[in-house]
Design a protein around this nucleic acid. Structure first.
Length: 274
DNA sequence: CGGGCGGCCTGGAGGC
DNA sequence: TGCCTCCAGGCCGCCC
């Protein structure tokens, strides 16, 4: 479900409700996520602590708490993190619940259990194996066409795989890779070795523009994305190619195609993307 | 070393 | 209605 825009929308929507709140209790009902949830660590590191800051790195949500620890949440494919009244009935697949002194409950639910909930000492986050090899933030100041060109130097393989390689660039998943390539007029199968400076510049701009627009519109809700307040996003109506196989291209009128690339669907316009 | 692919899970959609 | 297959927004590790 969630790529960078969805996690950023989630972060922004939760921030106002969570900063300053204290965790009274953590309940783990099903510890079997992508990695087993460490119940005792979660409780001892979060219990009684206040939430101080919400950050995002790649598709991870990072919540710094007093006591110098950080709660790390990754939504995987089907995860959600929402606020509910403390006594509200459990959501389906609500595997982890954080009971707050505001009378509300932060609910982590994840039917497919590809998500992640863990804590680390704040000072250890950057060097942790999950974070140390992450690539550049596409909305950060250092990301531009020249940066992409450097990252692509000496590489081969299709540009779509390059865009989705989290060791190079983070946060761009299957939806936004397709949308950015459409916006830049680049065919998803084009080899990175055959992209010139002008195209890299356009692609970098497209990535930033698409991600930024998606954030402004509350993310993409295809099935189940919700922000912290339970509100869906609206960017799905702005998608030009993703999920639109057989429809007419908004720009040139030709039919959008779907192909499979490294096991995943790729949508593109054969007229606009070369 | 880098790229491709299967596997991890469950649920929803669509075909028969 | 029910059963089967396919497909899904991410990521890791194995294989070549």
């Amino acid at each position: 479900m969630p790529e960078l825009p969805e996690v950023e929308v989630l972060r922004r929507s939760l921030e106002g409700h969570l900063i300053g709140a204290r965790v009274e209790r953590v309940e783990v009902r099903d510890a079997r996520l992508r990695e087993p949830v460490d119940r005792r660590r979660l409780s001892s590191r979060l219990g009684g602590q206040s939430l101080e800051r919400l950050r995002r790195r790649a598709k991870y949500l990072l919540i710094d708490v007093t006591g110098d620890h950080t709660l790390i949440v990754h939504l995987g494919m089907s995860g959600r993190l929402t606020l509910a009244p403390g006594g509200h009935p459990l959501e389906p697949h609500e595997h982890v619940s954080f009971y707050l002194d505001t009378g509300r409950r932060l609910c982590f639910r994840d039917p497919r259990r590809f998500g992640l909930v863990l804590t680390l000492p704040t000072e250890d986050v950057a060097a942790d194996r999950r974070f140390r090899d992450l690539g550049v933030e596409p909305l950060g100041g250092e990301f531009d066409g020249a940066c992409m060109m450097r990252l692509a130097a000496g590489r081969r393989g299709p540009v779509k795989s390059f865009l989705m390689n989290g060791r190079l660039i983070v946060g761009v998943g299957n939806i936004y890779a397709a949308e950015a390539l459409f916006a830049a007029g680049i065919h998803p199968r084009r080899s990175v070795a055959r992209i010139g400076a002008g195209s890299w510049h356009r692609l970098a701009e497209s990535v930033r523009t698409v991600l930024g627009a998606a954030i402004e519109q509350g993310g993409t809700t295809l099935n189940d994305f919700r922000d912290g307040d339970g509100s869906p996003g609206y960017f799905q109506v702005s998608l030009s190619v993703y999920g639109r196989e057989g429809e007419d291209c908004v720009r040139c009128g030709r039919q959008i195609r779907r192909v499979v690339q490294t096991g995943r669907s790729t949508f593109y316009c054969p007229g606009c993307q070369r």
